[in-house]
Structures are given as structure tokens and as C-alpha cells.
Design a protein around this nucleic acid. Structure first.
Length: 487
DNA sequence: TAGGATTGCAA
DNA sequence: TATTGCAATCCTA
């Protein structure tokens, strides 16, 4: 067993959310030592490393090694780092898992992407013509400034919002206009198609390898929420829409014709975690009895067993937003009801899940005393602004404190699941591989003869990450010949 | 050419 | 007056 370590990961678990976790920054911060920069030895950054003068390269490299060691020693003297299992049992094993996923990549079908590209191109040029006709002048539809000029100073449509510098012309504004002014709707559609074409189709085709595979990079230490991020390309924001956007996912295909793509995603993890962590009986009972949690909350809020589809939607939003400590104002904006109604919904939620309120109050109190909050796995996040003199800042910090234990535990759970699932695949000598992580979803390439076993084993591991929890986590799975949307 | 501003995609 | 992050495009400095 090879031992490996990462000073950046250690620094991240100590204080997530901070910038400057690189060797240069840490050497400067901790030892007041200025590292030799690469441009110093490479003459205007033009030289690749093998071209650098050997003497200089040796000193540069030696310094890197020495500083890494010095930093390692410094970190190992920190009891939080050495006592926490988060680094050893979570982040470091995950590092290897992510590295393997990056190298594996996922296969795409270029022809499908090219086909979508052409159809988008056609639609975009038609829309462009129609928009220019209505405007009576040619302009750049991609330029918010020019769109604002045309809509509000040439066609004199009623303007609503402003940005810092100009009329706002975002989707919210255009949606408001589109029932009366067809140009607004056409611009919305134009933008939608341009977005798909340039940000997704174009970009995916550019970064795909000669073997038609896409290799994203995961960043393990960037977020302040414990999540991973993905870039070059970002495979965590591939569209899920139900129009042509949906077809982009059909271009993600298995390694071989006879293989399958399988996706498993955690369902309502955060509400389930809220139930577990708060210990609220009503919430726990609903899950134990396998009830539809949005229905249950809806029945509480609207005081009837017979709630409408719309009421269920409201209840769903309340279940979701309460975890973020949302205010009546925020909720009213989000689901388009009056502030008064929003307050009634939120109050009803707390009234019927009383231990949730207690749990949140306890978290805030704990945070005020200790300046940090923790996940179920004792991962810490410092929130010193919880004691800020400014009430606004304090309230903000309180929402952060409420949300952190749940959101970060959620992130921790899927990290552990990834490690355990990969271990199972390795121990069982399976040929199937884990390809992607999209926050609460894992995507696999599954060999045909392993399908029956793995479609049981993988979700079983995911659902049983928490030992001794009063309720199970729930995982939905789906098997495809491509990566289509589940919802 | 760099970077701020605006916009929009996901969870 | 949820959050986080990645990326495209325009356009000014």
C-alpha cells in the first residue's frame, strides 16, 4: 500500500473555503518564505521544464520537496488534522478515486453532437432573422447592451429592472414581456439555443479526445460547501431540459456497444438528513412509513388530507428551502406567493416538525460558542461572523450555520459512497467502472455480464453509508444506453 | 489582451 | 432577502 498525502487537502479540511492552498501561498503564509517561481527559472515562461537549466531545475524541485515536507510536519502537529478521520478516510482515498475517474473519461458520440449542432445552427439563424425583422435593424443579439437599446430605446417596451450599468435583459425580464411582445420570446429561445450550442456542443466536441472520450477534471478543494466541482469541461452542469437540450445527454454513451450506462442518484438526501440529525419524530415516521414527504408536509401546511398538485409543489419547495434557513420574503419570491402566505407555510413546517426548530437553534447556539459547526463525520467549518456586531451579517452566518451540517454531510456521504463502491468493484474484480459524479448522482459504465449484480450492489452500498441511522437513505437508479435524464 | 459585467446551466 | 461553481460573450481599460 502506497502511502500518499496532500498538503492542500489537509489545509482544506482545516479551513474549507479559504483561498491560497497552494504550496507557494502556504510557504509564504506559514514560514514567511518566498518560493522560486517558475517564471524565474524558465526565462519568460517560454521554456518547458525539460529545457530549464539543470542546476536551476534541481534547486527549484528541491525547494518544492523540502517545503512540502516542512508543511507536512507542520500539519501533523495540528491535532484537528491528526485526530480527524476526514482526511485519512475520506479526502485522501477519494483523491485516488477521482484521479482514476478523470483518466477513464466518458465516451461520447460525435455524430450525435454534430447533428444537434447543425439543427441548432439552423434554428439560430432563423431566429436571428426574425428578431432583426421585428427590430427593423440588425444588431448583436448576444450583446445585453444592444438588446437593451433595441427593446427599451428603439421599440420602447416597458422596462422593469436595471443592472448596475444598464437595463436588465435577463430571462426574468424577457419572460415578463413575452406574452405581449413576441420579440422577447424569440430572444429567449435564441439565447437558449446559443447557450446549448456554444457552451455545450461546441465545447464538448473541442475537448473530446481522438478516442472520442471526455476527461473532466475534478476540483476537490475549491468549494465552501464540501462539494466537488468539475471543469474542462464541466460535466456537472449538462442540461436536463426536455427539449433539444435533453438530447445532449444521448451523446454520452457506454464504452462498448454491449455495455450499459447506469446512473444512481440519492433521493431527497437533505430532508432525510434533516430528519436523522434533528431526530424529529414526525419527519422520521413519514420516512419510516415510506410516505411521500412532500404530501405529508402539504397536509400539515394546508390542514387537509386532500391537497392539490399545486399545494404539493409548494410543500416541496418549503421542504427544500427551510434547510437553507430561507426567510418568508425569499420563499415568496421563489414560489410566487405573498410574503404572508410564505410565512404561514414556514411556520406550519416548524410547528409540525418541532425538533427541526430545536435542532437549528442548537446549531446556532453551538456555533456562537465555538465559532464552528460540524457534520456527522466531525468535519468542521468555521463561521466567525456568527458573532458579528452587524445583525445582517449575523443572520447570514446563522443561515450558513443551519445549512452547513446538512449540506456538508450530504457531500461527505457521496464521497464515502464513491470510495466504498470503487473498493467493491476492485475487490470483486469487476470490469465496470465509475465515470462521473454529479453532486448526488454517480454514473457508471457497466459490463453486460455484471449488470444484474451491480444494479443491486451499488445502490445497496450507497443507501447504507450511515451505520445505525434510524432511516435508510434512498437511491434511485436507471440503466441506459446513454446518459438521459431521469426526471 | 485581461478582466469585469451579464447571462445561464447544474445540483 | 438560498448556495456553489463553470463557462460564453461582450466590451472597456
Amino acid at each position: 500500500m502506497t502511502y500518499y498525502y496532500d498538503t492542500m487537502l489537509a489545509e482544506y479540511i482545516k479551513n474549507p473555503g479559504q483561498r491560497g492552498l497552494g504550496l507557494d501561498a502556504l510557504a509564504d503564509k506559514k514560514f514567511n518564505y518566498e518560493m522560486i517561481s517558475y517564471s524565474d527559472i524558465s526565462e519568460k515562461k517560454k521554456l518547458s521544464f525539460e529545457e530549464v537549466d539543470l542546476q536551476k531545475a534541481a534547486i527549484y524541485s528541491g525547494e518544492d520537496v523540502y517545503m512540502t515536507y516542512k508543511l507536512y510536519k507542520e500539519q501533523q502537529a495540528n491535532p484537528y488534522i491528526t485526530n480527524s478521520s476526514v482526511l485519512d478516510s475520506m479526502e485522501l482515498p477519494l483523491l485516488k478515486v477521482l484521479s482514476d475517474m478523470e483518466q477513464t473519461g466518458i465516451k461520447i458520440d460525435r455524430d450525435i453532437l454534430k447533428g444537434i449542432w447543425l439543427r441548432l445552427e439552423q434554428a439560430i439563424s432563423e431566429l436571428q432573422k426574425e428578431i432583426h425583422d421585428i427590430a427593423g435593424v440588425e444588431f448583436n443579439i448576444n450583446s445585453p447592451k444592444q438588446v437593451g437599446e433595441i427593446l427599451f430605446e428603439s421599440l420602447w417596451l416597458p422596462s422593469s429592472k436595471k443592472t448596475k450599468t444598464w437595463y436588465s435583459v435577463n430571462a426574468e425580464v424577457l419572460d415578463w414581456l413575452k406574452s405581449e411582445y413576441p420579440i422577447a420570446e424569440k430572444i429567449v429561445t435564441y439565447r437558449h439555443y446559443s447557450k446549448l450550442q456554444s457552451t455545450y456542443i461546441q465545447w464538448l466536441l473541442e475537448v473530446a479526445t481522438d478516442e472520442d472520450r471526455i476527461h473532466t477534471s475534478y476540483n476537490q478543494i475549491i468549494t465552501s460547501t464540501g462539494r466537488l466541482s468539475s471543469n474542462s469541461p464541466n460535466l456537472q452542469n449538462i442540461p436536463t431540459g426536455n427539449d433539444i437540450a435533453w438530447e445532449i445527454r444521448t451523446a454520452f454513451i457506454p464504452d462498448a456497444d454491449e455495455d450499459y450506462l447506469m446512473a444512481f442518484d440519492y433521493s431527497q438526501v437533505e430532508v432525510r438528513l434533516l430528519a436523522i440529525m434533528s431526530g424529529d419524530e414526525n419527519l422520521l415516521d413519514a420516512f419510516k412509513q415510506g410516505k411521500d414527504i412532500h404530501q405529508v408536509t402539504g397536509e400539515f401546511i394546508f390542514k387537509t388530507k386532500d391537497i392539490s398538485g399545486k399545494q404539493r409543489q409548494f410543500a416541496k419547495a418549503v421542504n427544500f428551502w427551510v434547510i437553507y434557513g430561507i426567510s418568508p420574503f425569499g420563499l415568496s419570491k421563489m414560489i410566487d406567493v405573498t410574503q404572508k402566505d410564505a410565512k404561514v407555510y414556514i411556520d406550519a413546517f416548524y410547528e409540525n416538525y418541532p425538533k427541526v426548530r430545536e435542532f437549528f437553534d442548537d446549531v446556532i447556539l453551538w456555533c456562537k460558542r465555538n465559532s464552528f459547526v460540524e457534520t456527522m463525520f466531525a468535519r468542521r467549518r468555521y463561521i466567525p461572523s456568527i458573532n458579528d456586531a452587524n445583525k445582517m451579517i449575523q443572520k447570514w452566518a446563522e443561515r450558513e450555520a443551519i445549512n452547513m451540517p446538512i449540506q456538508w454531510t450530504n457531500a461527505d456521504i457521496i464521497k464515502l459512497a464513491m470510495i466504498q463502491v470503487v473498493k467493491m468493484l476492485e475487490d470483486g474484480n469487476y470490469k465496470s467502472t465509475m465515470l462521473l459524479q454529479v453532486h448526488d448522482e454517480l454514473v457508471f459504465n457497466i459490463k453486460a455480464d455484471e449488470k444484474d449484480e451491480l444494479e443491486v450492489k451499488i445502490p445497496y452500498i450507497m443507501e447504507n453509508i450511515l451505520n445505525n441511522a434510524p432511516i435508510e437513505l434512498k437511491v434511485d437508479g436507471a440503466i441506459w444506453k446513454n446518459w438521459k435524464e431521469t426526471k
